[in-house]
């Protein structure tokens, strides 16, 4: 058996978690406007440092976590998340409160995840998509948190992304919420946002 040293967690857990949370909070408050997310984590690949930071800041024993195929294939990723967060890692996406997607191109349909119920729409998943880059075009966003309209884009994103988000929007107040974790940044696409092509 190969023994691997476990990558460390936050050096300063209290303030690091607070800083990462604040980035996520502003990201969801200002959909499509990437927020600074600095972290010194060096998690096992293919988990990105930004996604790892969000996991350590937000997940614990109360939040079942789902990993996409590429993340689940790396045992060190699960070990890292389990050790630092205590979160149970689940195979069934519908049970997860947080889902980590390292490869958005071939991610599961949103409907595979928990979308909440009418009485408790908050009982839904937050998807954390690892992306490489953000741009200010490709999609037009409208909704709470956006003054007027906003151009937004990120890569990679799954096919028919606008259609998926539109379908998600029609479920409101049910639905899933997205955090896109890029290099040194995080952007939010909550269920309240209207996403159109162009």
């Amino acid at each position: 058996m190969q023994t691997q040293e476990l990558a460390r967690g936050f050096v300063d857990p209290v303030f690091a978690a607070q800083g990462v949370f604040r980035a996520a909070m502003w990201a969801l408050s200002r959909p499509g406007r990437p927020q600074e997310l600095a972290t010194d984590l060096i998690p096992p690949a293919p988990l990105s440092p930004e996604a790892a930071a969000l996991a350590l800041a937000l997940c614990d024993y109360e939040t079942p976590v789902f990993l996409d195929a590429a993340l689940a294939a790396e045992r060190a990723v699960g070990d890292f998340l389990r050790f630092h967060t205590g979160a149970p890692i689940v195979a069934e996406p519908g049970q997860a409160r947080f889902a980590f997607i390292s490869n958005p191109l071939n991610m599961l349909e949103f409907s595979e995840f928990s979308q909440g119920i009418p009485e408790f729409p908050d009982a839904s998943v937050t998807l954390i998509l690892q992306v490489a880059s953000f741009v200010d075009h490709g999609f037009t966003l409208e909704g709470p948190g956006i003054k007027g309209r906003l151009g937004f884009g990120a890569a990679p994103l799954p096919e028919h992304f606008a259609a998926r988000m539109a379908a998600n929007r029609t479920l409101f107040p049910r639905g899933i919420d997205l955090l896109l974790a890029g290099a040194g940044q995080v952007a939010g696409l909550p269920r309240s946002v209207a996403v159109k092509e162009g």
């Binding site: 909070m25 969801l28 800041a57 937000l58």
Partner: peptide, 12 residues
């Protein structure tokens, strides 16, 4: 726990 609730509150 509170932070997670805040994030969902902002989303809805």
């Amino acid at each position: 726990m509170i932070r997670r609730a805040i994030l969902k509150a902002i989303a809805i």
